[in-house]
Computed example of a mutant assay.
Amino acid sequence: MPDLVPGSGLSALTGPDTMAYDRPGDLRTVRDFVADRATALGLPEVRADLLVLAVSELATNTLQHTDGGGRVRVWAQDGDVICDVVDRGPAHDFGREMPAADALRGRGLAIVERVCDAVEATPVADGTLVRIRLHL
């Protein structure tokens, strides 16, 4: 089981199932890491693709809107594949409507909410942790 972030009840991002990213060229590696880990944990390929899409959206937001990059961790627990994405940005605003088709931006977090079974954001010492879950 992952280590806990003091006071948050959420997992720290340490250990072998974690990777850091800090430049656009890392996005492909992040996607491959999440896909490989999710399928190894038993998530069917079509569901793993949804997890990869969600993490890609979150990691892209990190690189576009924060400094210092981010970290991703993937593991399975209680019938779910869970992925934490931590960056130095402010808490994300979930519960939003899908932007209009002609909007230039703003779909990323709405997409994350729609493709994942659960999404939560929590402030942590070094920024914000977004936890996403997909049921096995």
Rank of each mutant, 00 (worst) to 15 (best):
L58K: 05
G15F: 09
A20Y: 11
R107P: 04
T122W: 00
A38F: 03
V112A: 11
D67Y: 10
V34M: 03
F33P: 00
A118D: 15
V34K: 00
F33Y: 11
A38L: 09
R131N: 02
Q77Y: 09
A100W: 06
D32M: 09
G95F: 04
R107E: 10
E113L: 03
A103M: 13
D17C: 10
L109Q: 06
A38R: 01
A100C: 07
P99C: 05
L10Y: 12
R47I: 05
D102E: 12
I111K: 05
G68S: 06
D49Y: 02
I132T: 12
T39E: 15
R88F: 04
V124S: 00
L43S: 02
A125D: 14
A20Q: 13
A54N: 04
V72S: 06
G25S: 12
L4R: 13
G9W: 01
E113S: 10
G95C: 00
G70H: 07
V5R: 08
L136Y: 01
V115I: 14
H135I: 15
R23V: 07
S8P: 00
R88Q: 12
L63T: 03
P24T: 03
A20S: 14
D67I: 11
V74Y: 03
M19L: 15
G25A: 13
H65C: 05
L10P: 01
V5W: 01
P99K: 05
S11I: 03
D84P: 10
A35P: 05
Q77W: 11
R47Q: 15
L43C: 06
A100D: 13
V46L: 15
R71W: 10
L109G: 04
G25W: 08
T39G: 04
A35M: 14
H135E: 14
V81Q: 03
G127Q: 02
G106S: 12
P16N: 09
E113D: 14
A35W: 10
D117N: 12
T18V: 15
V86N: 06
